[in-house]
Design a protein around this nucleic acid. Sequence first.
DNA 1: GTAAAACCTTGATTTGAATCAAGGGGAGGT
DNA 2: ACCTCCCCTTGATTCAAATCAAGGTTTTAC
Lengths: 236, 236
Amino acid sequence: MSVNPITGEVYRIDILKTIPLFSGLTGDQLKTLAGIAVRMAFKRGEIIFQDGDNGNGIYIVESGKIKIYKLSLDGKEQILHIFGPGHTFGEVPVFQGKSFPASAMTLEPSDIVFLPRDRFVDLISTTPALSMNMLADLSRRLRAFTIQIEALSLKEVPARLAAYILTLSKEQKTPGQVRLPISKAQLANLIGTTPETISRMLKKMGDTGLIDVQTKTIDILDKDGLIELSESGRLQ
Amino acid sequence: MSVNPITGEVYRIDILKTIPLFSGLTGDQLKTLAGIAVRMAFKRGEIIFQDGDNGNGIYIVESGKIKIYKLSLDGKEQILHIFGPGHTFGEVPVFQGKSFPASAMTLEPSDIVFLPRDRFVDLISTTPALSMNMLADLSRRLRAFTIQIEALSLKEVPARLAAYILTLSKEQKTPGQVRLPISKAQLANLIGTTPETISRMLKKMGDTGLIDVQTKTIDILDKDGLIELSESGRLQ
DNA sequence: GTAAAACCTTGATTTGAATCAAGGGGAGGT
DNA sequence: ACCTCCCCTTGATTCAAATCAAGGTTTTAC
């Protein structure tokens, strides 16, 4: 039985088993992972690592929510990902280079599992199922970045906002209604605009009958209109 | 000895050996790769695959130059990567999803090597050196995208242009001088602006004594000034 | 439960860069 | 060498969204 070297608690295989990256692993392989796993608890708004720091292992969100982001010198923020339970992050410096290409911060109180680099690399290079899962995960992220670059470069703010609402409505299983999982200030940093602009665009989308906004909840009144807007659209 | 199934020619292991992705492979493994490799010749401006097409293998630039890019509905283009000899592309749908997240086109007459998915995946899952190389390659690309998103979202055009010139000057071993490897129209699509703006900004950077532009060649007159501009800077 | 702190909205103004428009210069083909 | 086409430049104008400014509202903390 493996004991967590930091907290001293037995680290539960059950949690690792639910993580997509580790699907298809044998019980023994999961036990090995559990043996090297370290769990850390973070409060809301704590920095997990910073752009440029040296990375030395991969991180898994066990509970809570984190953002991966870049800051400009004058303090503007661009969010690259928001990850919830089951997602892994911080892999890039494990496989290439030394430093993190971006920073990570909790958006809520979060439990994070850390797997130190060397033993994780040993495992991945002897476990084809794990390396294929990892390749799939990095590929998924490349795909997501492709879409984000396209949005930032080729689409205007209303289209990006419409696309975000449609993405939420796919993730959440409440057709015709969507709940914003983050503040509008964070949403602005995610789609590459400002809170003021978010506010104005949501209002305009309300005025034109696409949606109805109540604080954190948005009713989708005209899904086709939103799709149209997200693809090519200009608002109004 | 392995024979290319399309062209019928013997496919040279020597070329595969020079490709970073295949460094550290044994002679036998390279022979296996050579056995499944297909070489294709493209003219300048030919489409290799398109955004949304199903992918069924990885591609390697043997000679020439290609761009990976996204198009908007109204025809605007954002270039994601420009790859020369030795670079691989088209991996995402091999590991995740089915379709290409972007399009690929030659910028020059190019020879492209194709490795069909199934046999490549077989090899990668039995060859730790290959899977680690692949993970490093995808990680390198994630890092590059991170920088591109930061540039598009947090930096203005003069800063992006300065950063591009500095990147070129690192790649090319001619200190104080840089040769543009692509047309200014393509450069505009790479850094997310228009040819008119490129033209104006290069002129301004000339006026302020940072650089001296002669058609395709740029002399770097004030490297520190360029670095400053690329980081935080505003021009003039 | 109340105060403080975030967060959000709305309006006025500025600004960086796109677009529209037209003319100039090179490179490649005949 | 000449013509054509493409690429590039320059100027005038427009436009989307950022910024600046101030007031209102929700959330969090004590």
